[in-house]
Amino acid sequence: MKDFPEVDGWTVVPLSGDLDDYTAQEVRLLLDALVADGATRVVIDLASVPFVDSTGLGVLIAAARRAREDDGAIRLACVGPRVQDVIELSGVSALLRTYPDVAAACA
C-alpha cells in the first residue's frame, strides 16, 4: 500500500478527481485498508476533488464510522465550495468535520 504522510499523528490522504460512483469503490478499499492497518486518525485532503456525489459521501461516512469504532476520526481538509455545498445540503456536516487546510485538520 502507498505510504501517506503523517502530521501530528494524523495520516493525510490526498485524493484527486471526482469522488463518485466510478471511483468510490477504489477509495473505499483504500480507506478500509488504512483503518485495518491501524490508521484511525485520517485527514482526507480534498483540494483536488471538484465533485462528490452521494456514493462518494457514503464512502466517507462509512470510513468515519469505522474509525470512530476504534476511537479515531476522519476529517476533511481543503474542501472546495461545490463539495462543501453537497456536504452541508446532505446533512453530512454533522458527521464529518471540514477544515480549511491540512494543518488545521491535523491540529
Score class of each variant (00 low, 15 high):
1 M>I: 08
1 M>T: 07
2 K>F: 15
2 K>N: 15
3 D>K: 13
3 D>L: 11
4 F>E: 00
5 P>Y: 05
5 P>V: 13
6 E>R: 15
8 D>M: 03
9 G>M: 06
9 G>W: 03
10 W>L: 01
10 W>M: 02
10 W>A: 04
10 W>T: 03
10 W>V: 02
13 V>F: 06
13 V>L: 02
14 P>G: 13
14 P>C: 10
15 L>K: 08
17 G>N: 09
20 D>G: 01
20 D>T: 05
21 D>N: 12
21 D>T: 10
22 Y>W: 14
22 Y>P: 01
23 T>N: 09
23 T>G: 02
23 T>I: 09
24 A>I: 00
26 E>P: 03
26 E>L: 06
27 V>Q: 09
29 L>M: 15
30 L>Y: 07
30 L>H: 10
30 L>M: 14
32 D>K: 10
32 D>G: 01
33 A>M: 07
33 A>N: 12
33 A>K: 13
34 L>I: 11
34 L>Q: 12
36 A>F: 06
37 D>R: 08
37 D>W: 00
38 G>K: 04
38 G>T: 14
39 A>H: 14
39 A>M: 06
42 V>T: 09
42 V>A: 00
43 V>F: 12
44 I>G: 05
44 I>L: 08
44 I>A: 05
44 I>C: 04
45 D>I: 06
45 D>E: 09
45 D>Y: 11
46 L>V: 06
46 L>T: 07
47 A>V: 10
47 A>W: 00
47 A>S: 11
49 V>Q: 06
50 P>G: 13
50 P>E: 14
50 P>Q: 13
51 F>K: 07
52 V>L: 07
53 D>C: 05
54 S>Y: 14
54 S>E: 11
54 S>V: 12
55 T>M: 15
55 T>V: 11
57 L>K: 04
59 V>F: 08
61 I>Y: 08
61 I>P: 00
62 A>T: 11
63 A>N: 00
64 A>C: 05
64 A>T: 00
65 R>Q: 13
65 R>K: 15
66 R>E: 13
67 A>E: 05
67 A>V: 01
68 R>E: 11
68 R>W: 01
69 E>F: 03
70 D>V: 00
70 D>I: 01
71 D>S: 07
71 D>C: 02
71 D>W: 01
73 A>C: 03
73 A>M: 03
74 I>M: 03
75 R>A: 03
76 L>C: 04
77 A>S: 13
78 C>I: 06
79 V>T: 14
79 V>Q: 10
80 G>P: 00
80 G>E: 09
81 P>D: 13
82 R>L: 07
82 R>M: 06
83 V>Y: 03
83 V>G: 05
84 Q>Y: 11
85 D>K: 12
86 V>S: 05
86 V>R: 10
87 I>D: 02
87 I>H: 04
88 E>T: 12
89 L>M: 14
89 L>Y: 12
91 G>P: 10
91 G>E: 08
92 V>Q: 05
95 L>A: 14
95 L>H: 14
97 R>A: 07
98 T>F: 08
98 T>M: 09
99 Y>T: 04
100 P>R: 13
101 D>V: 13
102 V>F: 12
102 V>Q: 10
103 A>R: 11
104 A>K: 11
105 A>F: 15
105 A>C: 02
106 C>M: 09
106 C>D: 13
107 A>Y: 08
107 A>P: 08
